[in-house]
Design a protein around this nucleic acid. Structure first.
Lengths: 352, 352
DNA sequence: TCCTATAAATGGAACGTTCCAATAAATCAA
DNA sequence: TTGATTTATTGGAACGTTCCATTTATAGGA
């Protein structure tokens, strides 16, 4: 069943009795050709089973119609949604988006970027892998390729960023906790090699400051950004002499881990220890108890990022405004009722 | 910062004082060139900031090095893992895998396939969107392009399939339920436009038959393959005159929905109603209670699929053996203890 | 020394498009 | 009828590679 040699515009031309140029024009939907001719050509295209060779076309054309989306972890629905959001708008703009996964590995990321470049992409949207070196994008920048960061950013890079307002999200969440009467707050999970971490932690700290809470460093516990990390964070925090009564978690996975560990110790998330997550993934709503979390609308950010990229490509520039997406705190049940109204006021360590 | 015109092998040639052919040879790592020359050329490549133009190369070469992975729903971690598994092996085989998402939409799938073809992919791995028409791949087949289906298949297609042993998985799960003492079993979720549905249902039915269980059609309840679908299934089943005491769910999402609905009614999953899922997604382990589920190893299937594809490409064939991946039942707590040993044997409906 | 064999480097054609400049055909004004 | 204008169509060069057939340089054998 090996195909006869691939059909080209010459084959179509012969079949339709016109020149290759005419075929090319028809292919591009030019208004210059007579309607009847176009019909004839289109029929021939169908007959010979032609498939357009975009590679050949791009050789002549200035710009290709494909853009690359480089995602740090596709397995994480949070980032998958980002990708899907982008894809949606690219698709309807006639741009072909290719998704590549770096599995949070800078080396892989390097390879992926190289491939994408060789493929001749018109632009790149990247959610950089953890541990990406500051110079990783230098080459692409000097090549004049439009690049944007989505969701994550690199320290001191001038590449435009589309990301949620992490600072504000953390501020909101922290205020909520304080509003519930908590005084000994912790920040769980994440690590300082991620800019996002500093942003969220910054929001946490600012809220503590302005609300008169003592956010001593001891209550900031770095850890893996998954369930296991959350469990570990809770354990170390409870082993302290004055353990916290509530925690803002770096993301929802960490929060789930915290709740799991709480249960394992016979404590009830919400009633005995308040936890709030970040990202508001789908499971947050269905967890036991439903998790209070900061919603960031990744799909929306993806769409936004795609629009920014399209604009960059059209105006052939490599610069664009940053876009900081609105966030909002979705209050569910993982922080329990107001703390001040509870019967037994906290003994030392458990706050008050 | 617009880049100087893109460097080509001619620029390199000039810079290094050799001919374009020599540069090409170096680029391809040919052993024909003198090592010192190669060094010189490589330096020039670096100096001029050259990026290889794969499009141009593919114009001459018979085959490209990119393959397309078309996924029905990237947002679902189950399929995302499949993609990631494939990606891993392609990457290390020097093949560039591009992922495209169809969002379970046959029209989008059509567009995506067209794009990929135009891009000149060397092969295609597809997890077809629900509702894909039987003829959707005819064109690609006659074009002689290697195609494989992963995870899902189309009815009566001769395209090779890499998928889990759905039949056996369902059989195993059903036996487990029967072993626990259940006699009124239900199959929840999914719909008959998916081949997978028939396979899983087939396993369920066969187990019922051979174990002497009456699997009347009334106990097979189609529904959306998500939490909502699961909740709905449980409700309708409990409204029946002789409700089931256990259910095999089309997938884990449905199972989660069932457990949610159970809780909402004050019933305890495991103790009051046994539920087993399918796919064994990560959350299954962490759910309350942890969900018994059929593990299918999507990443492993992805790797397998990639290997099959690589072989197809190398042997320039469009045929390959199907591969049915082993499954295994991961027993956790959502089916409770043995039914026969419990004190109060099941009354109709609430089941012990 | 000359001839042959081997190693290294090279020029040219080809791949399938696009796009410009040029031609051919049709229409119109005089 | 003729020339000018508009409308449709066309040939050719170019895009950046690969690969074959040659050429040139180097070494070895007599």
């Amino acid at each position: 069943m090996a195909s006869r040699a691939k059909a080209t515009i010459f084959d179509i031309a012969r079949e339709a009795g016109v020149s290759k140029s005419t075929v090319s024009l028809v292919l591009q939907g030019s208004g210059l050709i007579r309607p009847e001719t176009a019909v004839k050509v289109r029929k021939a295209i169908e007959d010979v089973g032609y498939v357009y060779n975009r590679g050949a076309a791009n050789l002549r054309k200035a710009h290709s119609n494909v853009i690359g989306m480089v995602i740090n972890d596709l397995t994480n629905p949070f980032f998958a949604e980002l990708a899907v959001g982008m894809e949606r708008v690219f698709q309807s703009a006639g741009i072909v988006p290719f998704i590549a996964n770096t599995a949070e590995n800078p080396v892989r990321q390097e390879e992926v970027l190289k491939s994408l470049m060789e493929q001749g992409v018109a632009g790149l949207i990247v959610s950089p892998a953890r541990g990406t070196t500051p110079g990783a994008f230098r080459r692409l920048e000097i090549a004049g390729l439009p690049i944007a960061f989505a969701m994550r950013r690199l320290p001191e890079s001038r590449i435009p960023v589309i990301a949620p307002d992490n600072h504000r999200g953390a501020y909101l969440a922290t205020s909520h906790l304080v509003g519930k009467g908590h005084r000994r707050l912790a920040f769980f999970g994440g690590s300082s090699d991620l800019v996002v971490y500093h942003e969220r932690l910054g929001g946490f700290r600012e809220a503590c400051d302005t609300l008169g809470i003592d956010a001593r460093d001891a209550l900031i516990i770095e850890g893996e950004t998954n369930r296991k990390g959350g469990m570990a964070c809770l354990e170390t925090s409870l082993a302290m002499t004055e353990p916290p009564t509530a925690a803002l978690c770096f993301n929802d996975a960490v929060a789930f881990g915290v709740m799991l560990a709480l249960r394992k110790r016979g404590l009830e998330p919400g009633a005995d220890f308040a936890v709030v997550g970040f990202d508001d993934v789908v499971e947050a709503e269905h967890y036991m108890p439903p998790l209070t979390s900061v919603a960031v609308d990744s799909a929306g950010l993806g769409e936004r990022a795609a629009h920014v990229m399209i604009k960059m490509i059209q105006s052939r520039t490599t610069r664009a405004e940053d876009h900081i997406g609105a966030v909002n705190l979705v209050v569910r049940e993982s922080c329990g009722p107001d703390r001040r109204t509870r019967k037994r006021p906290a003994a030392a360590g458990t706050a008050t």
